[in-house]
Design a binder for these strands. Sequence first.
DNA 1: CCCAAACGTTCGTGGCACTAACGAAGGTAG
DNA 2: CTACCTTCGTTAGTGCCACGAACGTTTGGG
Lengths: 160, 160
Amino acid sequence: MSPSPEPTPARLRAIPSRLLAGAAVVADRLVSERLAAEDAHKWHFAVLVALAEGGAASQAELSRRTGIYRSDMVAVLNELADAEYIRREPDPADRRRNVITLTRAGGRRLERLDMLIADAQRELLVPLTPGQQDELTHLLTLLTEHHRPPHPHPRTRDPQ
Amino acid sequence: MSPSPEPTPARLRAIPSRLLAGAAVVADRLVSERLAAEDAHKWHFAVLVALAEGGAASQAELSRRTGIYRSDMVAVLNELADAEYIRREPDPADRRRNVITLTRAGGRRLERLDMLIADAQRELLVPLTPGQQDELTHLLTLLTEHHRPPHPHPRTRDPQ
DNA sequence: CCCAAACGTTCGTGGCACTAACGAAGGTAG
DNA sequence: CTACCTTCGTTAGTGCCACGAACGTTTGGG
């Protein structure tokens, strides 16, 4: 006999960092599942958006825009280039760099992935009212903006 | 001159799943840093809470309460037992199981870790007003509760 | 008595954030 | 021009973590 299944203690459930971790896992799974169905990964989407939004750029630039490490960026761009969603050409103005350009096919790919992502967000947020959804993104934005920089110290602290 | 540093595109920043992932990383780092200073990990805390809240239990029970896989639970309990924060004894009533009991030292350890965790939550939530903090945990709870089980066979018994 | 399930345990895998190091190229100061 | 420091793309490797496979032991039900 189970005397009482006694699921997760309330005290654990109430901890924000644990809630965030749990929600992040759920969200990531929803997104990844959908993208996997089209043989895509979230990094691909991030790079395509960064290109569409900010225009052609070097790999290091894209790394900064997306938060993807430049070591990992290589593989992502390889895959995107293999599918011809981007072009990767040496920069004539600075031969250390590659210029990454979004192709027309890449633009269409982005549209498609965008729909999948949006769909995943919708399913993720389904238990919330539209107002709550906005509130959540607002609060999360406040959080992440505040705790931004691993290294580049913001001006929040004056040096005595 | 930098033509325009052009940081993360607004379109990426606005995606809830990305916000959640980012916030979760920040939160996890805040917690882990503090616990590492006392040679602890978040799992240790989770197990200690589960014991304090739900009483002595088998390893599988603890696994369910905390969400830690039972394969990983072994190592966690080894460490907790080595430090004598718990006792691990065979269950005379069911010799497949171990009974895990919180020791007095374990209770004190929990108190200590609890303060560290609470401190981390405070720092995490510092950009939010108390009202916003409650709202955030509320919204996150709604989210995780709704998407709760990968599928831990609830008693919605399926036919065949 | 048999069989299926639960338990504790060991080992292994895949994904992901992150670091280290290196050759090539550019910027700059003397 | 030379010397030095930095940036860039790239390869390889590390450490952590969620998760699965398999096994021997034990239990309970038909």
